[in-house]
């Protein structure tokens, strides 16, 4: 594969969850996905700065796009939110020439210009469409046969579908499912698959976020899952870190220590990479039982 992407891990992965970035790089290296870094700033957060001031959000996104444009490269995002921010900002400026002019006027102050020539792509799409399942299956040395996985593709991976155009059926996503299956693991269906992780409403009302998180875990457990698999660091943080907060609303005897894996961690484990060097130990919920099921 000759394409080299500008890698966009985002703030959360870079500065809080580096083990997820490490697992992604292990998988990209093994599969020959080319990537390099760039001087990107915050995407910025589509559910943070965009809520404060849309124009500022758009201008900062345009700066990131301009950085990749200067190198004639497309951007590959490791985060649903970053991908969504950059794609929507690009879309807004392409459909609103006044906004584009305003943004470029602002970017002049830092010697940059947004032209609209860079594409932004989520890494799940790269793995499914460009690398392909056959190549991934061929790289599997330690199949995760018997591991039951509940999927969480996450809201901003595919919505709003008319702009992101990630997959055909936005409420019935298949790429993550197929990637998980290519590791030898089994996907279990549960009604809460498309339910939000609760990340955004947590900033306003943690109780509401916790009830959503609880529904998610309860649904996955009922379906017999051993773990959740995600493709977004923000969702990962909700599931792995915030899970401890369910204690206050748990039914008597119910314990919330459910493991979550990022999809490239799962693929790397199936490739035979050592859980210790991948950094699974940095998870709050290390999933020892789940990993023991597949002799890890």
């Amino acid at each position: 594969m000759t394409t080299e992407y500008k890698l966009f891990p985002g703030c959360l992965m870079t500065n809080r969850l580096p083990f997820l970035e490490a697992s992604a790089k292990v998988v990209f290296d093994e599969l020959g996905v080319g990537y390099s870094s760039a001087e990107f700033a915050c995407c910025p957060n589509p559910v943070g700065l965009k809520f404060v001031d849309n124009k500022t959000w758009c201008a900062l996104a345009a700066r990131n796009l301009a950085v990749a444009e200067n190198e004639n490269k497309n951007i590959m995002s490791l985060c649903n939110g970053c991908a969504q921010s950059l794609i929507i900002a690009d879309h807004e400026m392409k459909h609103d020439p006044i906004l584009k002019d305003e943004v470029n006027e602002i970017l002049k102050k830092v010697g940059k210009e947004y032209k609209g020539t860079t594409n932004v792509i989520h890494f799940v799409k790269v793995l499914y469409e460009e690398v392909g399942l056959e190549k991934i299956k061929a790289s599997v040395k330690h199949p995760l046969t018997g591991l039951k996985v509940a999927l969480h593709p996450g809201c901003h991976y595919a919505r709003p579908s008319h702009i992101l155009k990630v997959e055909e059926d936005v409420m019935n996503l298949k790429y993550l499912r197929k990637l998980v299956e290519s590791t030898g693991a089994t996907v279990v269906d549960y009604p809460e698959e498309n339910l939000c992780c609760g990340n955004v409403v947590r900033n306003t009302d943690p109780y509401t976020a916790n009830t959503m998180l609880k529904s998610k875990f309860d649904g996955a457990k009922r379906a017999g899952a051993d773990c959740l698999v995600v493709n977004c660091p923000s969702c990962f943080q909700q599931f792995d870190t915030e899970q401890a907060k369910l204690k206050s609303i748990a039914e008597e005897g119910e314990v919330y220590k459910f493991p979550t894996f990022y999809i490239t961690e799962l693929i790397a484990l199936a490739m035979g990479k050592d859980p210790a060097t991948l950094g699974i130990k940095f998870h709050r919920n290390k999933g020892k039982e789940a990993l023991a099921k597949v002799n890890l």
């Binding site: 580096p18 870094s37 760039a38 700033a41 915050c42 201008a59 830092v110």
Partner: peptide
């Protein structure tokens, strides 16, 4: 983890954009 330090962050550019 073997992934090294993150790339330089262009704080000055972010500040200038947000000022503007």
């Amino acid at each position: 983890l073997g992934i090294g330090l993150p790339p330089n962050i262009p704080v000055d550019e972010v500040k200038a954009i947000m000022e503007a």
